[in-house]
């Protein structure tokens, strides 16, 4: 169980001819332990860059990220998984071996690895497709394999960069339900980026609204509605409307 705390994050991208592009300016918020936080904003406001900074893929120029109270990038590492916009499955590996990919970074016994893979595939309901290759699976199934791969490492923090944006709405709602269930069951802290306000309201406990040029926090909104949240209920539509007004 780990919270994620950001303070004073700023980032510039170097430009060849112009002055460096200011992408993020003084971003600070906290994602609470075992809760779901959404980052929304128009395209080009640095949402993905911010997620990459939390993931440790991109260094911040200023500010700090602390995961579970520990400064990120140090030796004491909190298990963290990232889901990208694309499923990024290895085409030459079966579903089961794709799920096991993240486990191969650190030493692990074969029995433990097999068990984790089986559990993760069970969780996303793909036990029968363990030996299938990615190209044999539908888009929704591929997303589930990617989700299982993220969960197999038993992360305390799960970062998602619009991971379901390419799925059809029905499949998407279904996977949302699964993410909520799994996150609650394993007390995973989830941070996800989206441009879809409805998705943010349905899933998140807290929503960080960014505004562009440079990316700054417009507002942090708490969503305190009972779950499951139906997009058609009045309270949800109200929340969506008030958030849209901020964008």
């Amino acid at each position: 169980m780990s919270n994620v705390a950001l303070s004073g994050i700023s980032k510039w991208f170097p430009c060849k001819l112009d002055a460096p592009l200011h992408v993020l300016s003084d971003i600070g918020f906290e994602a609470q332990d075992g809760r779901i936080l959404a980052i929304i904003g128009a395209s080009g406001c640095g949402k993905s860059t911010l997620l990459n900074i939390i993931a440790g893929l991109t260094p911040a120029d200023q500010g700090h990220v602390a995961i579970g109270g520990v400064p990120a990038g140090g030796d004491a590492v909190v298990p963290l998984s990232v889901m990208f916009q694309e499923d990024r499955l290895l085409p030459w590996r079966s579903a089961a071996r794709n799920v096991g990919f993240g486990l191969e970074a650190a030493p692990i016994t074969v029995t433990e690895k097999t068990r984790r893979i089986r559990d993760a595939l069970d969780m996303v309901g793909l036990s029968d497709f363990a030996e299938a290759f990615p190209h044999e699976l539908s888009g929704g199934m591929r997303s589930r394999v990617a989700l299982a791969r993220s969960l197999a490492t038993r992360p305390e923090v799960l970062l998602m960069d619009e991971p379901f944006s390419k799925l059809d709405p029905g499949t998407r709602t279904q996977i949302h339900g699964e993410v909520l269930r799994i996150a609650a069951a394993h007390a995973v802290t989830v941070i996800f980026v989206t441009h879809d306000v409805e998705e943010a309201v349905v899933l998140a406990d807290r929503i960080v609204v960014l505004q562009p040029r440079p990316g700054t926090i417009r507002e942090v909104v708490e969503i305190d509605l009972p779950r499951p949240r139906d997009v058609l209920t009045l309270k949800v539509t109200e929340a969506v409307r008030s958030l849209r007004a901020l964008l």
Binding site: L80, L90, E104
Partner: peptide, 29 residues
């Protein structure tokens, strides 16, 4: 080699030699 896969491996904190073995090698086969 798909840079996305290398990035994925990095999020799992995979070492450079493992990235070479598990992503580069199968890609070049």
């Amino acid at each position: 080699v798909d840079p996305g896969l290398v990035e994925l491996a990095r999020t799992f904190r995979m070492s450079r030699s493992k990235i070479l073995l598990k992503i580069y090698l199968p890609t070049i086969m």
